[in-house]
Design a protein around this nucleic acid. Structure first.
Lengths: 125, 125
DNA sequence: TGGTTAGTGAGACTCATTCTCAACTGGGTT
DNA sequence: AACCCAGTTGAGAATGAGTCTCACTAACCA
C-alpha cells in the first residue's frame, strides 16, 4: 500500500488507493485500507491531507510542503514555500500555542483552466 | 443565521449552527441551514472552512486570516500572519497557477493543554 | 380568488469513514 | 501435528456530514 501511494504522482483519495491495492489483492477490504493508511500516516511514512468538499487524500511526500488547488478542475499540486516558516513564529506568538507544524493551501486556477477560460471567450461558450 | 454565526466567538460547525438557529425557530430544517450557509458563504458574508477529521466550520470573519488548531483539544483560533502574503507569489511562480487566495493552518498545542500536560506528569495520569 | 413562483420542512439518500465481529494467520508450545 | 493465543483481516453494518427530492406554504400578481 505504501508502495502504491509512493508510486502515484498525485494525491490519491482513500477510494483510489483502495482500487489500486485491490488490483494486486482483490480480497482486500476497505476497512483494512483505512487502517493501514492511518498506521502509515501515524508513523510518518505518508501524509494525510484534508481539503474542502473532498475526501481525504494521501501524499507519498512526507517532507513539509504546501499545496496549490485549482478551484475549477480540482487538481492539486505540491509547492515549497520556505518563507512560510517565518509565519510559524508569528502564529505561535499571537496564539500562545506551541506550533509543531503548518500547512498552507493556495487556491487559484491552474494554467490549463486559465487557457481554457481564454478559449471559451473566443468560442462564446 | 448570519447573526448567529457572527455573534459566536468561535468557528461553528454546521451542526452547531443548526442547534442555535433551531432555538430561535424550532421548525427549521437541517437542509435549510446548509442551503443558507452556502448562500452566505457564496456571497462573502461568512467564510467556510474545512479541517482534517472534522466537519465544515463557518467563520463570521470574512477578511483573510489564518488559523491555529490544537491537536489535543481541537480548539481553533484566528491568527493574522501577513508575512504569508509573500508566500502567495512564491506558490504562483512555482505552480504557474493564478493564485487568488490562501489559507494556512498551524497545528500545535494550546496553552491550556500544555499546562495540563505538565500537570499530568506530576499527577501521574 | 386563483395562478405562479421561490423558499421551506421533512426525511430519504449518498458517500466517506469507522466500527464490529467472526474467521483467519502465524508464532510459540506441548 | 494439534493446540492455544494474539493480532490482523474481510465483510458488511453503522455512523455522520452533507445533499437531494418533493409536497407544502407564503408571497406576489392578475
Amino acid at each position: 500500500m505504501l508502495d502504491e501511494v509512493r508510486r502515484s504522482d498525485g494525491h490519491l483519495t482513500a477510494g483510489e488507493i483502495f482500487e489500486r491495492v485491490r488490483r494486486r489483492d482483490p480480497r482486500i477490504a476497505y476497512g483494512t485500507v483505512y487502517r493501514t493508511l492511518h498506521l502509515l500516516a501515524e508513523h510518518g511514512l505518508i501524509q494525510e491531507l484534508t481539503f474542502a468538499d473532498q475526501s481525504s487524500r494521501y501524499d507519498g511526500r512526507v517532507d513539509r510542503h504546501d499545496h496549490v488547488h485549482c478551484v475549477q478542475c480540482g487538481v492539486l499540486l505540491d509547492v515549497d514555500v520556505p518563507v512560510a516558516l517565518i509565519a510559524r513564529h508569528v502564529a505561535a506568538e499571537q496564539s500562545g500555542f506551541h506550533v509543531t507544524s503548518h500547512h498552507t493551501v493556495f487556491a487559484g486556477v491552474c494554467p490549463g483552466c486559465r487557457s481554457a477560460d481564454g478559449r471559451s471567450f473566443q468560442l462564446g461558450g
